[in-house]
């Protein structure tokens, strides 16, 4: 299947991540637009379940069973195996979700296969002459570029939540493949896996995100952020300033060096809305901000901008919601 379009599957808690279904959707659409074949590749210790899920989005799922997976970081294991497979099947383009593992994998594969990478993709189309045309957000979101590969091969890193996964009309087939000639990368040992004290609700999939910034002032200040998140059925997000201050976990950081979210509602408390934060949340359908500064950058792109003190307005909003719900 030389010239095919691949996506790479990622597994979390035994299931295919939503981003892998988004990447599979992109690969399938590119294949449809170009009359090529498409496949999702999955390297995992126990791929059956996630492979079946991915098959809902793409005609073919190639699984590589790897028992190394538990003893090494995932990207290194996947890179060596996907590269070996790619040398045999010669896909043209590979779509990978831009998670930490996905970025690691893309860098390894790029040098192993000698291909370019278009990172931070927020839209991917097909052009008969240029191949995949990738829209990227660069310079911290200040401009959008559209780019293509110079050769007829390349890797696209897909930003989470920019494309809605869409199931295929007919489910695909799952095929287990054995790979030979695996040139494993230098060994890195996984000594331990530690779960965070209390894993916060993941922000990437939340319909509502209530986020706090430097204005929240302290870890205790996040109580009002959490309270509103609970009332609205949402997850708690944060700016880099709040994370750097140690008030909340890095896993909740939104923005250029954190996560990209696309919730229906983004409620920002004590956040100025700097460009590096904006790129991670500007795709929210509705943005509401509470800030005591009338001129913070968020005043230019929020739908509703409330000038006020979050420690007065926040509790008043909580009380108002409770009051209306009776």
């Amino acid at each position: 299947m030389a010239g095919a379009i691949w996506s790479v599957g990622e597994v979390a808690d035994g299931a295919a991540t939503r981003l892998s279904t988004e990447a599979a959707t992109v690969a399938r659409r590119l294949a449809e637009a170009s009359g090529r074949e498409s496949a999702a590749v999955l390297v995992a210790a126990d791929p059956a379940g996630p492979a079946a899920e991915l098959a809902g989005y793409i005609p073919r799922v190639i699984t590589v069973v790897s028992h190394l997976a538990d003893e090494r970081p995932p990207a290194a294991v996947a890179a060596a195996r996907i590269a070996a497979l790619a040398r045999v099947e010669e896909p043209a383009y590979i779509v990978i979700g831009a998670t930490p593992d996905g970025r690691d994998l893309a860098g390894c594969l790029a040098v192993m296969l000698g291909v370019g990478v278009l990172a931070n993709a927020i839209a991917v189309g097909w052009d008969a002459d240029a191949g995949p045309v990738v829209e990227e957000s660069v310079l911290g979101g200040r401009i959008l570029t559209s780019s293509a590969f110079s050769a007829d091969r390349g890797i696209v890193l897909l930003t989470p939540n920019v494309i809605a996964a869409e199931a295929a009309g007919t489910p695909g087939r799952v095929e287990a493949v054995a790979v030979d000639d695996v040139a494993d990368l230098p060994a890195v040992a996984v000594l331990d896996r530690v779960a965070a004290a209390a894993a916060a609700a993941p922000i990437e999939e939340a319909r509502v995100v209530v986020a706090g910034g430097r204005g929240v002032g302290s870890p205790a200040g996040f109580a009002i952020v959490s309270e509103l998140a609970d009332l609205l059925g949402g997850a708690v997000g944060a700016t880099r300033a709040a994370v750097d201050a140690g008030w909340i976990d890095y896993s909740q950081q939104i923005g250029q060096t954190g996560k990209t979210v696309r919730p229906a509602l983004y409620l920002a408390l004590g956040i100025s809305g700097a460009i590096q934060h904006k790129v991670g949340m500007q795709a929210a359908e509705t943005i509401v901000a509470v800030n005591r500064d009338p001129d913070a950058p968020l005043a230019e792109y929020a739908d509703l901008y409330v000038v006020g003190d979050l420690f007065e307005v926040g509790p008043a909003v909580a009380a108002e919601i409770r009051g209306r719900r009776g």
Partner: peptide, 25 residues
């Protein structure tokens, strides 16, 4: 270079902002 830029454009602007001032309540 393995990649090339075809074009650049500014990001889309969101709709108008409604600004609210007044008491917390």
């Amino acid at each position: 270079a393995s990649t090339r830029v075809l074009g650049v454009r500014p990001p889309a602007v969101r709709g108008a902002t409604r600004v609210v001032r007044g008491s917390a309540a």
